[in-house]
């Protein structure tokens, strides 16, 4: 395995009295594409929120390039080069398409991605650059959300349910664009309910079940039955 970029050690997460994650251990190597799968409520989004700093943790619960970042604020985590494409896209409605992208570039890290390269990836966005982000279709909004995250030129990009609520043809388009994105030397974690899509682009997979890791392995090694068992929590 390549050198670890991100390490989770005994990561817990709580919402008030409710515990959503139980002692997760994970290690993501530089340049890897990891799929995180699991049923609704398994803790996938909580995991994304914990890594990106939206949910505060023990400092050493999450470490990135050897630095403990679990207790950092989300903006500090972003500055270190971790970007999240949030579930439900969550564009800024008061901002135009281009402004949404520009605010993604706020952290100002150098790299391949700029307005120009994002527009090359998703040409439709350039046509719509001055429109209100709310006037776009769901698929186009997802492109803005991905472009917005890319604009930060992150080293690690987290995708949270990017196919949710989109038409299959759009999902295919977005997943066709993914190799071009992660081909830029980026490490990626892909949270998906669409297991087939996730497995197609990833090299390793973790399955979450009720806040715990129920399966872990190289994509080629895990069998369909193993995934079904880990996903639903029953023996195949």
């Amino acid at each position: 395995m390549p050198e670890a970029l991100l390490t989770l050690s005994g990561l817990d997460a709580h919402y008030g009295d409710f515990q959503a994650l139980y002692g997760l251990d994970m290690s993501i190597g530089e340049g890897e594409v990891i799929a995180i799968i699991g049923a609704n409520g398994a803790g996938k989004t909580t995991l994304m929120r914990s890594i990106s700093g939206l949910l505060k943790n023990r400092a050493d619960g999450v470490s990135y390039r050897g630095q403990a970042i679990g207790a950092l604020r989300a903006d500090q985590v972003a500055e270190l080069g971790i970007a999240l494409v949030p579930e439900g896209r969550q564009l800024f409605p008061s901002l135009s398409v281009e402004e949404n992208l520009m605010i993604g570039g706020k952290v100002g890290r150098p790299g391949h991605w700029s307005l120009q390269t994002v527009y090359e990836l998703f040409p439709i966005l350039e046509e719509r650059r001055h429109q209100a982000s709310t006037s776009l279709s769901g698929g186009q909004q997802q492109m803005v959300a991905i472009g917005r995250a890319l604009m930060a030129n992150p080293d690690l990009i987290l995708f949270d349910e990017i196919s949710l609520g989109l038409a299959p043809v759009i999902i295919r388009q977005i997943y066709e664009a993914l190799p071009g994105i992660v081909g830029q030397g980026m490490t990626a974690m892909i949270v998906e309910q669409d297991i087939a899509q996730a497995l197609k682009v990833s090299s390793r997979v973790y399955c979450l079940q009720e806040g715990r890791i129920s399966l872990e392995g190289a994509t080629g090694d895990v069998t369909h039955d193993q995934i079904t068992a880990a996903y639903f929590g029953m023996d195949a």
């Binding site: 990106s52 700093g53 989300a74 903006d75 972003a78 008061s94 605010i103 706020k106 917005r148």
Partner: peptide, 13 residues
């Protein structure tokens, strides 16, 4: 103003 959490993700404190 739109979304404090997501803005924070963009590196805005």
């Amino acid at each position: 103003s739109d979304n404090q959490d997501i803005a924070q993700l963009m590196g805005l404190n």
